[in-house]
């Protein structure tokens, strides 16, 4: 399949899943009813449900999916290691730690902007995604420092386990110290991720950070392609490796930090999606970045539709589904990597 064909196919898949995400929910409306409520604006209950509950949820599904898919592809391309994934190497859990600290200290409610969005004056507080970004930056830098520029599998995974465990423990500690009795139950949200009950304020606070991240990651393409030939060859081709590295760090941190701040740590997207799509783009990192963006969106949307179909009343966490799909694949990759290393 040509790259163009693949992209058209993935776009169509995303569009179908986006529509499904809008149309499937505990309150069963007819398709016509839903669509007229979505685009109309009579202010009745169905309009409120479509415009304020389902639309932001579906949009966030796309945004989070694009962010996680691209981040996975970028990390794998840069480290030239198929096991690199923001969830597995602790970037997501570090971002969650940042977000949790921001919520408990009240920083989440700071850095306020009042913006007229679509004609409505909306107050947005950027503390939450900023803190998620900060957590993510720290962990990406740590990972790069620990695993070295070549991304040795063993150190990469071990460093990831250590960072994940530490960030997860600190997240639990912060939530346990909270005077709020519900905070403890949120450990599940921050570790498993969910899009339930997200609103447009989550869309608006995440979007600017994600947009910066997407632009940064999209610009990595040529550098990552050159890097497949080795670092020396890449430098000979005029790629400035330090700059490439910096762009990658900021791009991944912005994407994962913002995504985690609004939806919790959703793992395995960045692992599974590039893995499935890599053969279809002839393992070209630049093409894989774009394909993974769409693939990630499709995967998160699909998972978010599934959790509503399987257990509509229960708010099953997205991470549960992702791990069910992703963990066996991860084991398979690990097995293959071990054989390659032996």
């Amino acid at each position: 399949m040509s790259f163009r064909g693949l992209m058209i196919l993935l776009t169509a898949l995303c569009a179908v899943l986006f529509a499904a995400s809008l149309l499937i929910g505990p309150a069963g409306f007819g398709i016509g009813e839903s669509l007229s409520a979505l685009f109309g604006g009579q202010g009745d209950a169905i309009t409120l449900v479509m415009q304020e509950i389902r639309l932001p949820r579906a949009l966030l599904g796309v945004m989070v999916g694009v962010s996680l898919g691209m981040s996975g592809a970028a990390l794998q391309g840069y480290l030239r290691n198929p096991l690199a994934e923001p969830g597995l190497i602790g970037v997501s859990s570090s971002a969650a730690l940042g977000a949790v600290i921001a919520m408990q200290t009240g920083f989440a409610k700071t850095v306020a902007f009042t913006l007229p969005i679509l004609g409505i004056t909306t107050e947005l507080t950027m503390g939450l995604p900023l803190a998620g970004l900060a957590g993510a930056v720290v962990s990406v830098l740590l990972i790069l420092f620990l695993s070295g520029p070549r991304g040795n599998s063993l150190t990469l995974i071990l460093a990831g386990i250590a960072i994940s465990a530490l960030a997860g423990a600190l997240t639990s500690l912060v939530l346990n110290l909270s005077p709020n009795p519900y905070a403890i139950y949120e450990i599940v949200f921050w570790m498993m991720g969910s899009l339930a009950n997200r609103s447009f304020s989550h869309v608006w606070i995440a979007l600017p950070f994600m947009a910066v991240g997407w632009v940064m990651l999209a610009r990595l393409g040529r550098g990552l392609d050159a890097l497949t030939l080795g670092e020396d060859a890449a430098e000979a081709l005029g790629i400035r490796l330090t700059r490439l590295r910096l762009t990658m760090v900021i791009g991944v941190a912005a994407c994962v930090g913002a995504a985690t701040a609004v939806s919790g740590a959703i793992g395995f997207v960045g692992l599974v999606v590039p893995h499935i799509l890599r053969p279809l783009v002839q393992a070209r990192p630049s093409a894989l970045l774009w394909a993974s963006a769409l693939g990630g969106a499709a995967m998160v949307l699909a998972a978010d539709v599934f959790v509503r179909v399987i257990l509509p009343e229960q708010d099953l966490k997205l991470g549960v589904l992702m791990a069910l799909i992703g963990a066996p694949l991860f084991l398979h990759l690990l097995y293959k990597t071990r054989r390659a290393m032996a």
Binding site: M103, P179, N180, Y182, A183
Partner: peptide, 9 residues
């Protein structure tokens, strides 16, 4: 609402 923030609330 309880003191301190929670995603739940």
């Amino acid at each position: 609402l309880y003191a301190g923030a929670s995603q739940a609330e």
